[in-house]
């Protein structure tokens, strides 16, 4: 039994989550808790279901069965307005997915203005402050196509932050980047973690997992095959598949 106190610290609770695509069983029963302020890194082989898991957390994919409690509300319930809860869950994609027909500033203000009903002045002031934090204030009026990959991903991160989310979900945020740009994005994420943001990060950057994660999760065969603090996870893996996986990526 969890005490009331412990419950208050849990931001996302996943219960027996399964996901089938046709007769392919991608997730076969995932249960876990993500606490406020926690940084959880998810690793696993290609095709193991990492993205699928992350995407079910904000219901971009609708799970086949199981529950996801976000801030105490079961968001898999059909009667829940998922749009309101998604506002509290920032998502950063591998392919950035900035809106190409809007300036950087517009990319960042459209959500706060249309959804949080902020005034243009307020939304823009906040956006400029966020852009300043990632060193891109001078690109506010540029279009996404005029930015480098690393710059685009930094904008994507602050675009999500402009909604004041309670958790940030990252799906391989650096995998589409040229190697020399990986660092600038990881640095932004690391600062975010330091500021206490709750983060769930799918990544192949083992250095990031080791340094920033509070917990590392290994997804294999549709379940969490192993999870641990980074120290134990990397130095003392138990699952034979994890040992094999680590020997390949480290």
């Amino acid at each position: 039994m969890t005490t009331n106190n412990a419950n208050n610290n849990v931001l996302i609770q996943v219960k027996d989550l399964t996901m089938d695509f046709g007769d392919v069983h991608v997730l076969k029963g995932i249960s876990t808790e993500i606490k406020k302020g926690e940084v959880v890194v998810i690793v696993g082989a290609s095709g193991s279901g990492k993205s699928t898991f992350l995407r079910t957390l904000n219901l971009l994919e609708e799970p086949t069965s199981g529950q996801i409690l976000f801030e105490g509300v079961d968001i898999t319930d059909k009667n829940v307005n998922i749009n309101l809860h998604r506002q509290k869950m920032g998502t950063v994609f591998q392919q950035f997915n900035l809106f190409p027909h809007m300036t950087i500033l517009k990319n960042m203000t459209i959500g706060p203005m249309k959804l949080l009903k902020k005034s243009q002045e307020e939304a823009e002031a906040e956006a400029m402050e966020l852009l300043g934090r990632v060193g891109l204030a001078d690109r506010a009026n540029a279009y996404p196509s005029q930015l480098s990959g690393g710059q685009k991903q930094r904008v994507a991160i602050v675009r999500a932050l402009a909604m004041h989310p309670d958790v940030m979900l990252f799906d391989e945020p650096t995998s589409a980047l040229d190697p020399e740009m990986v660092g600038e994005v990881l640095e932004v994420m690391q600062n975010l973690a330091k500021e206490g943001m709750t983060m769930v990060v799918v990544t192949h950057e083992m250095g990031f997992a080791r340094e920033v994660a509070d917990r590392v999760m290994f997804i294999h065969d549709g379940i969490i095959a192993e999870e641990n603090d980074p120290q134990s996870f990397f130095t003392n893996p138990q699952h034979p598949r994890l040992k094999e996986f680590l020997s390949k990526v480290l």
Binding site: N58, N83, R86, T91, N97, L98, G111, K114, M163
Partner: peptide
């Protein structure tokens, strides 16, 4: 690209808003 749609929905826009704005 379907990522545009997903980015809109992830920000919290509903289906119609995502279509209209993005």
């Amino acid at each position: 690209d379907k990522g545009q749609f997903e980015a809109g929905r992830s920000l919290g826009f509903n289906y119609i808003q995502t279509m209209w704005y993005i």
